[in-house]
Design a protein around this nucleic acid. Structure first.
Lengths: 352, 352
DNA sequence: GTTAGCACTCCAAACGAACGAGTGCTAACA
DNA sequence: TGTTAGCACTCGTTCGTTTGGAGTGCTAAC
């Protein structure tokens, strides 16, 4: 059996209708809905075929049909192909984002939080935004300062301007000269290195040169290791969890509880982020439908993600999580817009 | 009408039973449950009185009674008075916490997150922990460092060892000498001041002394203001939101959705934190029952909070949010334990 | 290939009976 | 006077039945 053009049109009509209503759609509806001018009986025959092909399913006998994952997949793929070259209209989101980005260019964290919130409000789905992850992770700057007699502050800056601080306690106050010497020692030896490159040889050399301050240097190195090994613990902001209650198919206790937990324990979401970031042939937007998603608890959801890239290799993920019958069209174009704004934002900065 | 001892006993029995079952409790149940040896008819008379006094209510005619907010309040107050001097048994929580606190004394953030999680797991309620808020907010240390030719890093340390960083861009690289001068200028003028004390006069004096670097100083002061004005934006960690689904009286869509939002937008919770911290005659534990809570969306919940205090004036709040029929006894003693551990943790550090 | 017609299926909502938990009241009892 | 047994009554819950409607599959005719 072939999927001819008429079947295709009917499938599309079924999906569109289901996206709107969330109810199984019957043959009569389609017969009226489309401009095909076919009777419900004919549609019934075609629907029977579409079911055999696996694009739609019946929740139970004598009910209408709903799209299967395979059906959604076809629909989404086709849509993506069609609107490859979409113009970038100044949507609501773009306007809001431009204001955000203009306002404060340095406060990445709060901007990402706001993006998550804005997307949740504008789409009525749950959203997540991961903070950019630096792949290389080279140390750019390290400094030891005396806050008071017994407390030192280590400040390290990693490529991509990620800043980390750690307080250290010392028994004896350090004089200015020693502090300067230690700072020079640390900077000359460690700058430009990644965590992997700070090996045992380097460590013992440093300790040797530090003399009596060997112990202090060890503590500093610990702090450095701590600050740079952030890969496992990606910062993720979420918003709009309450939106899942808007879709009855997600709102029963069991599912809702699981989903809420997934959003609360952001750790589970890192899997999604890793998945999207690791995908090589990534065009920027990815769609996971139902069982395709990498996170178990979301098997009844669809997830659309966008990967944004600030500088080379510094990437993050924006994700929208909703029911299978998501408004893919709107979500995808919204994400495309937001992504392009974020991509641009850093380029703009460099131009200054 | 008086609330004599017998009525009191009956009220207690009603509440205890309701805490367990969540179902309205009838006269026959009480007649069997207690050691009063009274028939159900007598109990009925007493219950009628208790209802008139406002301690219990009937969800509808011909149903059992459930405690009113006033009833819970009496019960809780009495319990608190009784166990004023409770011994500090080594509970599950204490053990878990001691491990946490021993492990890393500097990582306040992750410890607080863990506490929230642990409490949620051990109590089956939703939890929140606010990071300590410094009242005075005096600047302890400020430093300007050169990360690379075009980027400066401001690091400020506020009392209570809260550290803030901001990146600044400059057009012209600064030489070491200028940097040193600016640092001395900043430290000598600003150290020990609170945000309120950095007034216009001070600012213009600084700018004047900075000469050509006036603009830079202005940027630094902006960063300082930004870093110190954190009062409005208290860091709050939450956990166990999913637990609300365990209590049918909270789990309907409407309520659940509101509660989830409250937990997600932690801003709303700051009100609760402010309320508890501002209460002067605070013995450490506070109980808000139903409509007593300061947050509208929680009017069907009870909230138990503990205020912990690290150093003088550096306080935070731990809160447990559950249904009205919360196991107050367990929750209160758990919170007492956790609170005392946190209170101690800093004292211990000082002793070292 | 398309369509009208019809029997059939199945869910959802409406209905009502039966049940049971619980009350309030009254009258009797110690 | 306080306590208790008894009884009529209320009201929510449950469960089986009914009904209506939406939708299907099949068949026969166009």
């Amino acid at each position: 059996m072939e999927l001819d053009e008429r079947k295709m049109k009917i499938l599309q009509a079924i999906i569109r209708n289901y996206l709107e209503t969330g109810e199984p759609v019957g043959s009569r509806t389609i017969s009226k809905y489309t401009d095909l001018n076919l009777s419900s009986a004919t549609i019934r025959n075609e629907m029977s075929d579409l079911e055999e092909l696996g694009f739609i399913v019946q929740p139970h006998t004598s009910a209408g049909r709903i799209p299967s994952d395979k059906g959604y997949r076809l629909y989404v793929d086709q849509m993506m192909a069609q609107k490859e070259e979409q113009l970038n209209q100044a949507t609501q989101e773009v306007k809001e984002m431009q204001e955000m980005l203009l306002e404060r260019e340095d406060k990445m964290e709060s901007i990402l939080k706001q993006i998550a919130k804005m997307l949740a409000n504008n789409t009525n789905y749950a959203t997540m935004v991961s903070a950019p992850v630096v792949k290389g992770n080279k140390l750019k700057f390290i400094q030891l300062s005396r806050v008071d007699a017994k407390q030192l502050l280590t400040t390290i800056v990693v490529e991509g301007n990620v800043i980390k601080n750690t307080m250290l306690r010392v028994n004896e106050p350090l004089d200015d000269e020693t502090l300067l010497k230690l700072n020079i020692l640390l900077n000359t030896n460690l700058n430009g290195l990644s965590l992997a490159e700070i090996n045992l040889a380097m460590i013992s050399r440093l300790k040797q040169q530090a003399g009596v301050y060997e112990e202090l240097i060890a503590a500093v190195l610990d702090a450095v290791a701590d600050g740079m090994k952030e890969d496992e613990d990606i910062e993720i902001y979420t918003s709009g969890a309450k939106n899942i209650f808007k879709y009855p198919e997600l709102a029963d206790h069991q599912r809702a509880s699981e989903l809420i937990t997934t959003f609360e324990e952001k750790k589970l979401l890192t899997e999604l982020v890793n998945e999207t970031l690791s995908d090589e042939e990534n065009t920027g937007i990815q769609v996971y439908i139902g069982s395709e998603t990498p996170i178990q608890t979301m098997k009844d959801c669809s997830v659309v993600t966008a990967t944004y890239e600030l500088e080379d290799g510094i990437k993050g993920t924006i994700g929208i999580i909703g029911p299978r019958r998501m408004d893919y069209d709107k979500v995808i174009s919204t994400l495309k817009n937001v992504k392009s704004q974020l991509d641009k934002s850093y380029k703009r900065k460099d131009d200054e």
